[in-house]
Design a binder for these strands. Sequence first.
DNA 1: GATGAATGAGCATTCATTCAT
DNA 2: AATGAATGAATGCTCATTCAT
Lengths: 216, 216, 216, 216
Amino acid sequence: MKHTDVETLFANNIETANLSKKQRSVLKASLTLFAKQGYENTSTLDIARLAGVSEGTVFKHFKTKEGLLQAVLNPFIHDIFPRVADEFLTALHQNPFDDFDSFLKYAVRDRMAYAMDNRQEMKIFIQQMVKDPSIMTKLTDRLAHLLQGGVDSLFHDYKQKGQLVDWDSMRIVRMVSGVIVGYLIPNIIMSDQPLDVDKTTDEVCEFLLDGLRPRN
Amino acid sequence: MKHTDVETLFANNIETANLSKKQRSVLKASLTLFAKQGYENTSTLDIARLAGVSEGTVFKHFKTKEGLLQAVLNPFIHDIFPRVADEFLTALHQNPFDDFDSFLKYAVRDRMAYAMDNRQEMKIFIQQMVKDPSIMTKLTDRLAHLLQGGVDSLFHDYKQKGQLVDWDSMRIVRMVSGVIVGYLIPNIIMSDQPLDVDKTTDEVCEFLLDGLRPRN
Amino acid sequence: MKHTDVETLFANNIETANLSKKQRSVLKASLTLFAKQGYENTSTLDIARLAGVSEGTVFKHFKTKEGLLQAVLNPFIHDIFPRVADEFLTALHQNPFDDFDSFLKYAVRDRMAYAMDNRQEMKIFIQQMVKDPSIMTKLTDRLAHLLQGGVDSLFHDYKQKGQLVDWDSMRIVRMVSGVIVGYLIPNIIMSDQPLDVDKTTDEVCEFLLDGLRPRN
Amino acid sequence: MKHTDVETLFANNIETANLSKKQRSVLKASLTLFAKQGYENTSTLDIARLAGVSEGTVFKHFKTKEGLLQAVLNPFIHDIFPRVADEFLTALHQNPFDDFDSFLKYAVRDRMAYAMDNRQEMKIFIQQMVKDPSIMTKLTDRLAHLLQGGVDSLFHDYKQKGQLVDWDSMRIVRMVSGVIVGYLIPNIIMSDQPLDVDKTTDEVCEFLLDGLRPRN
DNA sequence: GATGAATGAGCATTCATTCAT
DNA sequence: AATGAATGAATGCTCATTCAT
């Protein structure tokens, strides 16, 4: 069960679909350069050159450099992340795990691997979030809304079976993602040292499982 | 037991000490503006104006804008953060807690409050780390080194008493700080919504304590 | 006796006649925009949008933006203004006035009303003349040629009857139009305050007829 | 009795006084180029080159290209034109003329010569007025205010002596300047054909004094 | 040490014009 | 004929940095 990586989704994105070949290459060049050197340190000329187009072309469709950034980030917020979340929830529903331990391990490993596969893209997101918090709000709102329904039913059985603490589902999600984020962010940012997904998953889960064990 | 805030430490900082009044005001203006609008979006003229000096003065001592950034960040890495860590460890040693629960609650609340008190300064750090990972490496190396000795002796008793899982001390530190970081970063960045430190501390500790409970 | 306004003449103009519907709409859009925001501040994209055509279409027929301007101005010089002048002279000949006073009042009121009715179009002309004096030369040459014959016969009788000073006809024309221009230009340019044509006509004529010499 | 020309006044202008040598040369270059090729067709690089400075220098003091235009025009509105008007009124008061004929001839010739001497500067003014009518409003308001008091006393005697029609003084001023403007504007704009000031003065005055009514 | 005028390379953006479809 | 994507030169403007005073 392999997840689709962001780049593929990006290429097929609905908003991206009606762009010409050149405009798509502008978008891709922006993604690459923003990730590598940051938004502010990337000039529109850099983008044009990497995309193999004229500078005018960069502005013809995207109007401003900021518009280009939005065009890079929006698919993530409105399409890719939600789709990924959905894909993930579906996968979880289709492969039911007998116990919460296996479930958690699968989930953590999967999302961690996902993030590792898409480091570059994550980095832009993190960089922009640090500057413009509204992006983060938009994204978390959107994801919260998406997960709200899905996770309740997922967690319900495990709670019944006494394998999972009877907390509000979103609190559990926050804890788990908090720990993962605390682990991943330093790694994503210092991108030269990739993470050992298996080892980290084991460590994280051992810790999470005892934290999430039901109180007797 | 109140911690000293970063700004006071900053003013008294050893590297900062031998600067003239004007140069110090340049440094302070940089801190303020970098925090508010980011490094790239702050011009040296902005800094000069806020500091009440000429543009030439900004460069007289600090050579380049990058030098100004380093002058702002270095005290944190080499002086302020270590001193804060030391202050914290000392406090912990001086106020011994009978059980790990009380200890953890104190520690978490204290560091959380500390971060909340110095949001602005943290924000520059986060922003720069995202762009220049080496800053993070430098900082974590330095802190790791500082804590290594200190925490071992702190945790030893609790481990003996069967109140704390017998993991490597740094793994415990990483877990705890991971959870805290996962909680704080979103809040620091979206600085308009301050965090309820007490409530969050309780939530975080409830979770951490079961995760860190020794295995039978 | 109502004069035809410039827009109607423009639409029926001989040079304009063999244009396609789209090209005509390009020309009309140019007229509107040049008048409203000036030639330099109007982009060919603005024109294309207002005309409801593509940018390519704008250039298909008119070759350059300058060509577009010429296409807008030429009808005025070669067709519309002369036709208007002719229409005016004819009207004067057909409605002979017994005395020069009545004649002058009619003429002044008519041309003044004409200019007021076509402010927008006048404005482009004025703006362009200021930049490219050759337009003015072309126009004045053309009008001078047209009036030369016509006015002589018109003025002759009045001069004979001792109602009009015996100056060269063109000097009289120049004086009269000078005074009118001095009155109108400020008003056309500051288009928000329309002029009271009747009142102004009376003032201007009183002055033109008696000058500054006191009435006995 | 020779009037001071605009360029000299411009150089000594109070607002202009505290500019550095280079900034003054930027201002002078702007004046020259705006007059020669119009505001829109003059690039800031053109100005920099003619002024013999870097492009940055152009913006250091004047902030924007529009600011440069204002810096060129403002002295005219706030300083030069008023000073010229004052100088003119004073001169008229100091050299009393026995009859209105001599007075008018002197005044017309003087202002006409003044305008001819400063064609280039006038041209910018006219060009800008055509685009931004508010400039004209500002100027006319200012001049009207200045003349209001002065001309009344000047005209009073001539009116008493029966040499000047008993109209409102401003109406007389408007008529006279209207005729002069009607004569001058075409000439200023088509700057290659300078005007014969003496001949034109005679023509204009003859007309102004007696109107179109035949001499008995 | 401090000043601030000057620099000039760099940047985002605009726009008339072209051309393949 | 019409389209509109693409072009690339040009433009107004910014900013870190230098240096004469």
